[in-house]
Nucleic acid binder design. Structure first.
Ligand SMILES: NC(=O)c1ccc[n+]([C@@H]2O[C@H](COP(=O)([O-])OP(=O)(O)OC[C@H]3O[C@@H](n4cnc5c(N)ncnc54)[C@H](O)[C@@H]3O)[C@@H](O)[C@H]2O)c1
Ligand SMILES: NC(=O)c1ccc[n+]([C@@H]2O[C@H](COP(=O)([O-])OP(=O)(O)OC[C@H]3O[C@@H](n4cnc5c(N)ncnc54)[C@H](O)[C@@H]3O)[C@@H](O)[C@H]2O)c1
Lengths: 230, 230
DNA sequence: ATCCGGTTGTGAAACACATCACAATTAAAT
DNA sequence: ATTTAATTGTGATGTGTTTCACAACCGGAT
């Protein structure tokens, strides 16, 4: 309960996020040992214990860690210990699927609004939402206390849409578009690109016969930087 | 053009994948320097050059690298220099969106079939596909020469569905389900979980005022290992 | 009260990775 | 032909991360 996020190794941070996620799926009262977590993650038990010592001591020797307090400690140091409201931008096939998806709630993310530029879409009821116009974006963001958005507009509109989002006050964007976007330094973008994910699989494929795919490997970063091809 | 994937540092591999992706979006004839790539990726130019020396020398001093040959060399060493056929399993909202998505072609992934368990869905025309029954899975996989699948069934069916896929001969699975799944050692799974991606953003959010989010960070690994909660 | 199996927390050593700095090389200009 | 400006490829160095191995610790059994 001492050190802060800045002094924790980047790679440890990505693992902490993983532990957190696993702990979210365990019953509060339970006790979990580093070797339990090792089995679930593929990381070594020693590494897990080391990761935890970067910011405190929570375990009891001979027993392990109590799920609840460990999860809380991690969430605390990662700064993900609060509720977040989320906006969906672009209600096409992907955006519509997201509006019917309920499972974000468990992770304390609340989808609270959806906007589209297409007059045909504005006003439609989808899931438990009414699609609103992108013209009202600023108001929606302010009223809804929204700081995060999921971007699912066509790639060609990605940059424009991001600029609208930023102007409206959004500070974090999950970019489902395959298109890289530029943002100011104080806005975070996290790209998700299924083609890239498939490429990882293709790579793993071609490794058959080489090293067995045991070792777990690190996690990807924060911001995109410049424009580039698709 | 000498060393093999196994002796390349894990972290370098993840960057190579990134370079590859960027090069895919540039015109073949062009020349690109390590500092160009540095701007686009956020990695230092020295690091990029170092990454490339792990498996050969392709540049001409004073000019840089020709896009085409560099991309090819990377694709070659990563083993992603071939076409792959892909199956969609579960044609709900997400699966249907994927069936209308064309952009995988650019990356040499070809969606060639879709299956569902629901008799209401089987036989429907979606995009340019006819949804087929999960009972015909083995035949479809064999006939279509398919080794990769994108899993978009409900979380509760994830493990069952994966077992069907593996039995049918699929060797690589992109898991869009939020549910971790077990697979044999020689099958690769790549989980994509939007809630986790949102958590990265929440984390970046809470850093405001701390370290500027400049530094690019590594990329996540191959296989899940055991079951766990959602 | 003591022992015992199991587990944590952590120094120290080993390893992997990134950065630095520059000689070698090239294309283009003169 | 020579100069110039640009850029590569890489030893050497330094930093960051993982692993090892074990003393300290805890709770429960005897
Ligand atoms: N469909 C898939 O399976 C899939 C897979 C991976 C990535 N993607 C990407 O996700 C994005 C969305 O895909 P989709 O299939 O839902 O596309 P879509 O064309 O069905 O939907 C796009 C929606 O965005 C709206 N829009 C356009 N500009 C806007 C703006 N400035 N503000 C608000 N709304 C705006 C459009 O009116 C439309 O309703 C695309 O970038 C696509 O490349 C899609
Ligand atoms: N909807 C979203 O925005 C979203 C976002 C993130 C993740 N996900 C995940 O993606 C998955 C799919 O989501 P969805 O909204 O499309 O769900 P959905 O319920 O609309 O579709 C699921 C489909 O899978 C089929 N199915 C079930 N068992 C099957 C089997 N054994 N073999 C073949 N098909 C089978 C069902 O018949 C149904 O058509 C879920 O796991 C969900 O958690 C969805």
């Amino acid at each position: 309960m001492s050190d802060h996020l800045e002094n924790i190794p980047e790679l440890a941070v990505s693992r902490l996020l993983r532990y957190h996620h696993i702990l979210m799926g365990m019953s509060q009262g339970d006790v979990v040992s580093s070797s339990d977590l090792s089995e679930k993650t593929g990381y070594t038990a020693a590494q897990i214990r080391r990761d935890l010592t970067y910011f405190g001591q929570f375990g009891t020797p001979g027993r392990g860690y109590t799920v609840d307090s460990l999860r809380n400690a991690i969430a605390d140091v990662l700064g993900i210990n609060r509720e977040s409201n989320v906006l969906i931008m672009g209600v096409g096939r992907v955006g519509a699927a997201l509006l019917h998806y309920e499972s974000f709630e468990k992770h304390r993310f609340h989808v609270v609004a959806a906007v589209d530029v297409d007059p045909e879409k504005v006003g439609l009821e989808m899931g438990r939402f009414k699609v609103r116009s992108v013209e009202d974006l600023s108001d929606i963001v302010t009223e809804g206390d929204i700081r995060m958005a999921i971007l699912c507009v066509p790639p060609a509109q990605a940059q424009t849409a991001v600029e609208q989002l930023v102007r409206a006050g959004i500070r974090a964007i999950l970019n489902l578009t395959a298109m890289p976007v530029d943002v100011p330094d104080d806005v975070s973008v996290r790209p998700v690109n299924l083609a890239v994910e498939l490429e990882w699989l293709a790579m793993a494929q071609s490794r058959r016969g080489g090293s067995r795919g045991e070792k777990a490997v690190p996690e990807t970063g924060f911001n995109e930087k410049k424009k580039g091809g698709d």
